[in-house]
């Protein structure tokens, strides 16, 4: 299915879930569970724990769909943010340290010639414009739901430096994406 068509279907399902329409919720689950589970697994590598967190995410989607504002942004982005927030809560409450990762995806996402980003040249282009250290910190924080302290440890960088990288990197990213 073409990504635009898929996004429109997710949008339509969430519009109906806002009205508590259960078949639309089932359809939304069918459309999104694989992608949301993948996203959750990046933050919670334990598959059982990730499945529990995913279940809670869908319960929240059902419960909180009426707070989604279609006039402000995309349904899929809203669903992903809710799911990421839930996964981040789970991993932090479980007091498990995120596993040290040698995930090749991070290298591909921050690399110049990854072959990824077929759909989203703008974010890729703007990420490449910022220095490698802030780029790695921003993408790692987003993908793995890491705190500043965890990132500082993983990237072996003083906390103050890391915060500064992220702050400046986000500012540059914002400026680039707005132009």
């Amino acid at each position: 299915m073409h990504p635009d068509q898929w996004n429109r279907q997710v949008e339509a399902c969430l519009a109906q879930v806002k009205l508590q329409h259960r078949p639309a919720f089932e359809e939304l689950y069918r459309l999104t569970n694989g992608r949301l589970y993948a996203l959750t697994l990046k933050i919670i590598p334990d598959r059982e724990l990730a499945a529990d967190a995913l279940q809670e995410s869908y319960a929240k989607i059902w419960r909180n769909a009426d707070s989604y504002r279609s006039d402000l942004g995309g349904a899929w982005a809203w669903i992903c943010q809710l799911t990421r927030n839930t996964a981040i809560d789970w991993i932090r409450r479980s007091e498990r340290r995120p596993e040290s990762s040698d995930d090749p995806l991070i290298g591909q996402l921050i690399g110049d010639d990854s072959g990824l980003w077929q759909q989203h040249h703008d974010l890729s282009r703007c990420l490449r414009k910022i220095r490698e250290e802030p780029r790695t910190a921003i993408v790692s924080a987003y993908l793995y739901g890491l705190t500043h302290a965890e990132l500082s440890e993983r990237l072996q960088t003083p906390l103050g430096t890391l915060k500064s990288w992220i702050r400046r990197g986000l500012k540059e990213l914002h400026q680039c994406l707005e132009t």
């Binding site: 993948a38 942004g73 759909q119 974010l123």
Partner: peptide, 16 residues
């Protein structure tokens, strides 16, 4: 959300 969500589109789905 819309800006950063583009990263999520790069993940390969894993069936729940």
């Amino acid at each position: 959300q819309d800006r950063m969500n583009q990263i999520n589109d790069e993940l390969a789905p894993v069936k729940a």
